[in-house]
Design a protein around this nucleic acid. Structure first.
Lengths: 144, 144
DNA sequence: TCCATATACTTGAACAATCAAATATTTTGA
DNA sequence: TCAAAATATTTGATTGTTCAAGTATATGGA
């Protein structure tokens, strides 16, 4: 029982699967770099930073956990847990909705605004680098 | 202290950071679908499947943990741990290298080959769907 | 030859994310 | 009006990943 490398003269054209495997590889390495930079400079993971980013762009700098989860593609549970340390260090705080006692808004504090302003410069430059590195990945070769 | 939504007539052009935030969102949702399909049909995560994929493509269907880690963009530690359940269910087994007693090859078993053959059809079709969904994401709008 | 360094791997502790179940509140409709 | 269904959130258990430290083996000079 031999594997395919041994019999074919050249690899077949890349399949959708090949593409996804390589995308995953590229993506994880890329994000690892952005995350590393952000962590070392500001002590924030890219996930933490993304929370600040969405709050910053939201109306009144606040969002319900559900909406944050939807924006980030995470479960609400993950959002609840990610917010805890950000609340603890004072970048985010919790506000309740007078109209609906179920909701707990995550709300960017002024410290959060300040850190975001700094960190977003770091993040922008790390993301530019990441995109440069990603250009090596042929997004245009999407299999039909 | 207002956020940027309230003052500008339209959003500024997307930055590298905007791109990376959206890429992350797209990527996680996309892979969640592929993973879900593969898990429900074959009981394999996309990570497990990717291990089989790399072994299948490797010379003699086997790889050292280090090389597998490099191919997958994971730490060797993660690879060691991911292989354990695959060894337990008999899709992969461990072989030593007569030349170098440090290495433990991960080696696709015949059951592994068979499952991979089935699962790669599922994976290919899930990846095609994922790519269709991903086309909504404008990869071509990479900021300069 | 043999010691210092490099390499391959495993393991423990910490952390992040998931799912499922639990709680609290709001909404809907008979 | 009030019970059933829907919604917002938290929590416990599990899984998967990381980093740092540890073990075992190999290699490359003095």
């Amino acid at each position: 029982m031999h594997n395919s490398n041994e019999s074919e003269p050249a690899e077949a054209k890349p399949t959708a699967l090949d593409f996804c495997v390589r995308l995953t590889r590229t993506y994880t390495e890329t994000l690892r770099r952005v995350d590393g930079k952000l962590s070392s400079v500001h002590g924030l993971s890219f996930g933490d930073f993304t929370i600040l980013y969405h709050l910053k762009h939201a109306h009144e700098s606040r969002l319900r956990r559900t909406d944050l989860a939807e924006l980030m593609g995470l479960t609400v549970s993950a959002v609840t847990r990610s917010l805890l340390p950000l609340e603890k260090i004072g970048l985010v705080d919790r506000k309740s909705d007078p109209r609906d006692a179920r909701v707990g808004y995550a709300c960017l504090t002024s410290a959060g605004h300040r850190l975001f302003a700094d960190a977003s410069e770091t993040a922008e430059s790390a993301c530019q680098d990441a995109i440069q590195a990603m250009r090596l990945f042929p997004f245009r070769e999407l299999p039909t």
